[in-house]
Design a protein around this nucleic acid. Structure first.
Lengths: 348, 348
DNA sequence: CGACACTTTTGGATCGATCCAAAAACGGGG
DNA sequence: CCCCGTTTTTGGATCGATCCAAAAGTGTCG
């Protein structure tokens, strides 16, 4: 309708229209308490009347706050990260921040390029699921740039350097092993990933701890391989056909576990009765699989929310004490790990 | 290591260090051809030596290009949009653009707020899967702002107003019906969504067209309801228990179709033999379901790539002719829609 | 050697907000 | 009516790049 490419409306125009100075208008835009009520109202009306659009770029130049946050995940196509991102987005929107998103594909190079861009764009904070093999020096570098960084789900080094939000996978796996042991299982195999990152180490630590606790050290066995659904199927097939076939599988994530379920039904075995299967993440699909899949629930959405909240807090208090938020990862027991799979009730 | 909060390095510092003017340094940063090779090299070295970080905000203020793009989807937790986003991200990264992301949750209000933010941030273009009931005026308003906007997957109004990238769902559904008809099916029900948006209308149009073509107008039946996996199960159960139970179901998306498969196995029926099921999207899970699910493949990643490419092109040529890219949505036939489900081969 | 075309470089103005120190307006008491 | 402490408002400087028209440098040729 309008679309006459007239020159853009600026604070100066509003000032003229409302009969005040640029500075006053600026204060109104910043919702400052300094401005008298009547003046504020007049300015706001002028802004609406002229169709003013706040120019965040110009504001940033002077004030160096951008109201943006950078988010890096490995693979946004993975439903887990989709849910994580949903939690982040939800929380940021409520606080009027906007996320930049990039998928690193676990490539250090792509991650580095994106981080450089984020620096140029001067994001107020960074939410980072570090790519595999990210060196600690990268995280330190980000801190040196003066950019708050929250590590999410994974952290580099043995323990997080700065702020961290993740799930208690160690405890989750311990619970899983205990649950299996009370069901009489002894040959319990962990289907892990290939890469060596913190989230992987935590699972392993929980597994070793619980197997030791149950006096099953000698029977502990860790299978390493890729983490897709197909790979899960193949890996499970190979294990189950071996001469010392396990009676229970704890899988790195639900995709692998769902693959394992396929392997079992392919072999004519009944998950839960013939071989127990437990996954990690408790994605939506888990509850609806046949049989329903037991899983260690990592609640990605909640993790996302917490991470975003922590970021907002860190922006406000850059020097505040570093936080390490570890959310519980409860075991959700379903038919795939119960000998008597009569009723499919879920535990909380 | 460094972290002494010394004043930031600017073009002026580089200019002094390299013995040239600010303007020359600026030209080098813009990779302009005007600068002599030797000078360029000297400037670049000075930039590295001083640890310069390009300030995109300052550049934007003057040049009004931000190297950012806004992306709105309904629900980033939905794997379909995860894959779409992956394609977008991939293409944008290659062209050195960075995406802002927001999930509208199909809420007009949240969508509007995000669009306002995008305007303040002066994104170079917008990729928009419009929320349900988005009025055409919103799209026109965006155009009036001088912001290129690509509608993705859905479009408002009867036909897209401007640039559009989507899948040919109409043809996909027509193929699905034809395939079912040649298998002898006559009672073919379409499980649609509740909302009335373009992607829904296209499916319906294809369905009606193909049913008419097969002389099955009277048997055409459309079931409307929610689009989750659980809802799919319930809806399929209700239909199959009815007195005129369909022998084939075409589902709005794969989640609904997978729910329908659950319903069949719950009733002791065999998908493919007793009742055919076809989904839409061909998500990863479809091929691995039991039995494998036939699906109309919408290739979200490819759509994302195309949309991002079109956005980049539109930024370069704002007044170029509007494009309507409709990608083929081929029917992938698997066991769930074959009477003789002996071999599970896939068609292309 | 000077005119001319072409390549490189340059300084000043500019984009549109925020910051800050100081000025103006206000209000109540003496 | 003036003084003084508060509350509001203000102008100029500033953030760090780009744009532009003009100046400086280079090379060629008659």
């Amino acid at each position: 309708m309008v679309s006459t490419a007239r020159t853009r409306v600026t604070l100066k125009d509003i000032a003229a229209h409302a009969g005040v100075s640029r500075s006053t208008v600026s204060l109104v835009m910043q919702e400052s308490e300094l401005v008298a009520g009547a003046t504020r109202k007049r300015v706001q009306e002028a802004a609406v009347a002229l169709g003013y659009v706040y120019n965040r770029g110009a504001a940033t130049l002077r004030s160096s706050r951008t109201a943006t946050v950078g988010v890096v995940v490995h693979d946004i196509a993975n439903p887990f990260f989709g849910a994580l991102m949903a939690g982040i987005d939800e929380t940021l929107q409520a606080a009027d921040y906007i996320p930049f998103l990039a998928s690193s594909g676990d490539s250090l190079d792509r991650q580095a390029r994106f981080l450089a861009r984020m620096r140029e764009h001067r994001v107020d904070a960074l939410l980072l699921c570090p790519a595999e093999e990210t060196p600690a020096s990268s995280i330190e570098a980000i801190a040196d740039w003066g950019m708050p960084c929250i590590e999410v789900m994974r952290h580099v080094g043995q323990s997080p350097l700065g702020d961290y939000v993740g799930a208690d996978l160690r405890a989750g796996v311990i619970n899983a092993v205990r649950h299996l042991v009370t069901q009489g299982h002894r040959r319990i195999t962990l289907l892990a990933g290939i890469a060596d990152h913190s989230a992987d180490r935590e699972r392993l630590a929980g597994y070793r701890h619980a197997m030791h606790e149950a006096g099953l050290d000698e029977l502990a066995s860790v299978d390493r391989g890729p983490l897709t659904r197909c790979a899960g199927r193949e890996r499970a097939l190979a294990l189950l056909r071996g001469d010392t076939a396990p009676t229970a599988l704890i899988c790195h994530n639900d995709l692998v576990a769902l693959g394992a379920l396929l392997a079992l039904s392919h072999l004519g075995l009944h998950a839960g009765r013939d071989c127990a299967v437990i996954g990690v993440d408790d994605i939506e699909e888990a509850a609806l699989a046949e049989p329903a899949l037991s899983s260690i629930a990592t609640h990605p959405r909640a993790i996302g929310r917490n991470a975003a909240e922590l970021a907002i807090q860190r922006i406000a208090h850059p020097e505040g004490e570093r936080q390490r938020i570890v959310l519980e990862a409860p075991l959700v027991i379903r038919a795939s790990s119960r000998i008597s799979s009569a009723v499919t009730q879920e535990s909380t």
